[in-house]
């Protein structure tokens, strides 16, 4: 037989297709999940609408007004929903594969193990949050570009960069998640994976300036340079909403750093994954 590499794209599409078939088999559940995630997004918007009734900005002179912040919020949703759609179920399954020993089958396949582990399943219902994110983003941008004072202008170039950094953000979150999941090879169990994930990514949900006060500075440093979750949403949202228009140079440094952080995160997660796999292969019977 010819020595042909599998087409990763086609394998991925088959995964996506199988997941869709599976999701449509449990239709009620799928629908309820869509409804609940729509409810979640609505309530979130509601909360920030209330907040902005009491304040014009988040942080003095930060530039994060209502619609700038809604761009930020939409970006958070977009990234989170992508991570949930593609990786959350798989990270969960990964610990399960390790626990049951079914990881053996994954190791047998003539295809990259990390690829197989990371993409096996898709949670299509999480895309409802994605849709909500797109809607919110469009509404917020519409408001920003048509406001009478300092209307925002958006070039195709910016949109391209935004999409690129969206992917970077997803990649950083993915790296964090797969690294956390890999630790279950050493720890044996992973009930706290979700908690950890939630607690860490929680810091990414707000503009990074808010940590720039009091005892927030070490937190800011840690979540920017050690576990770079702060750049995940901040960089793309900042690019598009431009809350710091006058100090653009700072933004560009941040953008370069985000690129670096993405590459390092991906490499680090690959390393952690391989190391964990190595101890799986020498430990199990």
């Amino acid at each position: 037989m010819a020595q042909r590499r599998p087409s990763y794209l086609r394998v991925f599409l088959t995964f996506a297709r199988n997941s869709l078939v599976r999701d449509t088999m449990f239709r009620t559940n799928f629908l309820l999940q869509c409804i609940s995630s729509a409810g979640w997004t609505l309530m979130n918007v509601g909360f920030y609408l209330i907040v902005f009734q009491h304040t014009p900005l988040i942080g003095p002179e930060s530039g994060w007004g209502k619609y700038e912040f809604f761009v930020f919020l939409a970006t958070t949703w977009l990234i989170n929903s992508l991570v949930q759609t593609f990786f959350m179920t798989n990270a969960d399954d990964y610990s399960e594969l390790i626990r049951t020993g079914n990881l053996d089958f994954v190791l047998l396949k003539p295809i990259d193990t990390q690829f197989l582990v990371s993409f096996q399943k898709m949670d299509w219902s999480s895309l409802s949050t994605f849709t909500a994110g797109v809607i919110l983003l469009v509404v917020a941008l519409w408001q920003l570009t048509t406001r009478p004072v300092h209307p925002l202008s958006i070039s195709p170039w910016m949109v391209g960069l935004y999409l690129f950094y969206l992917c970077c953000g997803v990649a950083i979150f993915y790296s964090l998640m797969i690294s956390l999941a890999s630790t279950s090879i050493w720890l044996g169990r992973n009930q706290t994976l979700y908690d950890f994930w939630f607690y860490i990514t929680n810091f990414a949900r707000y503009p990074m300036e808010i940590y720039n006060r009091g005892w927030g500075v070490p937190l800011w440093g840690f979540f920017t340079f050690v576990v770079p979750v702060l750049v995940v949403v901040n960089v793309p949202a900042r690019l598009l909403a431009q809350p710091l228009h006058p100090q653009r140079s700072l933004s560009w440094q941040l953008a370069c750093f985000a690129l670096l952080a993405t590459i390092v995160s991906l490499l680090a997660s690959r390393w952690v994954f391989q190391r964990a796999l190595l101890s799986y292969r020498s430990a199990s019977s």
Partner: peptide, 27 residues
């Protein structure tokens, strides 16, 4: 340990409100 961790999300809430109160109190 789990209980202690559960206070972590409050940390981000504190900073959100900190920033907001800074804004409306003008410093």
């Amino acid at each position: 340990l789990g209980t202690l961790m559960r206070f972590l999300p409050i940390v981000t809430q504190i900073f959100l409100w900190w920033a907001i109160f800074d804004t409306i109190g003008h410093g």
